[in-house]
Computed example of a mutant assay.
Amino acid sequence: MRIGLDMMGGDFAPTEAVKGVKAFLDTVAADVHLVLIGDEQQLLPLVAEAQLDQSKYSVVHSSQTVGMNEHPTKALKEKPQSSISIGFHLLKNEKIDAFISAGNTGAMMVGTYYSIKAIEGVQRPTISTLVPRENGTYGLLLDVGINADCKPENLVQFAILGSLYSQHILKIDNPKIGLLNIGEEEGKGNLLALATYPLLKENKQINFIGNIEGRDVLSEKADVIVCEGFTGNVILKMAESFHELALRRNIEDDYMKKFDFEAYGGTPVLGVSKPVIIGHGISKGLAFKNMILLAQQMIESKLLEKIKESFVSNEKQ
Rank of each mutant, 00 (worst) to 15 (best):
F242S: 06
L294R: 02
K221S: 01
G281T: 09
I292T: 06
L194A: 14
V224W: 00
I299A: 02
G214P: 03
E309H: 02
D216F: 00
G189D: 13
V226C: 04
N314L: 13
V276L: 08
D216S: 08
N233F: 00
V272F: 03
V234Q: 07
D260M: 02
E186R: 14
Y197E: 14
L194G: 09
K237V: 04
K274L: 01
S219D: 01
L294Q: 09
D223N: 12
L286N: 06
L236G: 01
H243T: 05
E220I: 04
R248Y: 01
V224A: 03
G178T: 08
G281V: 10
K274E: 02
K204V: 06
F208L: 10
K171H: 09
D173I: 05
E228S: 03
V226M: 05
E305N: 07
S310N: 05
Y197R: 14
R249A: 11
L270H: 02
L199E: 15
E186H: 11
I278N: 04
V272K: 06
K237S: 02
G232A: 09
G229C: 06
F208C: 09
P268W: 06
D254C: 02
L293E: 11
G266T: 10
G229K: 05
G189W: 09
A287T: 04
N314M: 12
P175E: 13
F230G: 06
I282K: 14
P175D: 12
A295K: 04
E305P: 03
I292Y: 02
E202R: 14
Y264E: 10
A263T: 14
S166M: 07
E186D: 15
P175A: 14
K188L: 15
F261H: 13
G189L: 13
E252Q: 15
E309N: 09
K302N: 12
V276A: 07
D223C: 04
E186G: 07
D173L: 07
L200Y: 07
L304F: 01
E186V: 14
N203R: 12
Y255E: 07
V272W: 03
E220P: 00
E240V: 01
K257R: 15
I182P: 01
E220F: 03
K274Q: 08
K289D: 02
S313Q: 12
D216E: 11
F261N: 11
N181Q: 12
G210W: 03
Q205Y: 05
E228D: 14
A263I: 15
I277S: 01
E244R: 08
A222L: 05
N314F: 04
I251R: 07
I209Y: 05
N181C: 15
K274P: 03
K258F: 02
I212S: 08
I251F: 04
L245D: 00
